[in-house]
């Protein structure tokens, strides 16, 4: 008898997690219609409820090209993203951080918190060292992601990513937290694929296509040929 109860309990829990997994992964999201005309521009303003809580945005800066595109994105959507919001900046490259520091000076109303992420791979490392650094990176990023994720609960928030590889680890942990903590709200992860990708997605893009909430490409060919669920709005950077 006891085992029957136990088994059914396990089954119920398992079912709950499977349902949770289905709801947090992007495949069964209702598709928002992106083809609507821009005529209802006012709707942008209408949705933007005057929330008392500031917007919280996480961005990740990895290296030269990605950092350049991310800063252009922030600049283009500064009214939405840099209007007195709290920025959680993840970085793995000191030069990128410096570029961001120079850029954000002009937005004095934003508060910024910096989180350094270790690089997933070191060149010329042997197997044991590689395994060590990978485990180290995973644990360190997990701690950062937990802190950032729970700081965002209850506030309007966004995770804006555009590469490099560390973004896969970050997204994985975010979805892991969503899966385990059953009642946490969606992470709102948006991934923007690099402008340099016209015909094939990057490796990071290939992985994140299965994880992130909105996958944005900058060339129509890429959406039509490889990534049908992705969205294309033209060149954004």
């Amino acid at each position: 008898m006891k085992t029957a109860y136990l088994a059914s309990l396990v089954l119920i829990v398992l079912t709950a997690y499977v349902i949770r997994l289905v709801t947090i992964l992007p495949f069964f999201h209702p598709q928002t219609d992106t083809q609507r005309d821009t005529e209802d521009e006012v709707s942008v303003l209408r949705i933007q409820k005057p929330s008392k809580k500031p917007l919280k945005v996480f961005i990740f800066l990895g290296s030269g090209g990605h950092t350049g595109e991310m800063i252009r994105l922030l600049e283009n959507y500064k009214d939405l993203l840099l209007n007195g919001s709290i920025i959680y900046l993840g970085y793995s490259d000191e030069a990128s951080k410096q570029r961001f520091v120079d850029f954000i000076k002009n937005f004095t109303r934003c508060k910024v918190q910096y989180y350094e992420f270790m690089k997933a791979r070191e060149v010329k490392a042997n197997l044991v060292q590689s395994v060590k650094t990978i485990i180290g990176t995973l644990m360190q990023s997990f701690i950062h992601v937990i802190k950032i994720r729970f700081a965002m609960c209850g506030s309007p928030h966004l995770f804006l990513l555009n590469g490099p590889g560390t973004c896969c680890i970050i997204s994985f942990w975010l979805k892991f937290i969503e899966l385990v903590v059953l009642f946490v709200d969606s992470s709102h992860i948006v991934y923007v694929e690099s402008l340099a990708r016209i015909n094939t997605p990057s490796l990071t893009g290939k992985v994140l296509y299965w994880l992130v909430d909105e996958f944005i490409v900058q060339w129509q060919e890429l959406r039509d040929n490889c990534l049908p669920r992705s969205k294309w709005f033209g060149i954004l950077v």
Binding site: S51, L80, L158, H188
Partner: peptide, 13 residues
């Protein structure tokens, strides 16, 4: 791009 901005806004809020 207004449509992209709307997508972000809808998701954020």
């Amino acid at each position: 791009n207004t449509s992209f901005e709307r997508l972000l806004t809808e998701l954020i809020y």
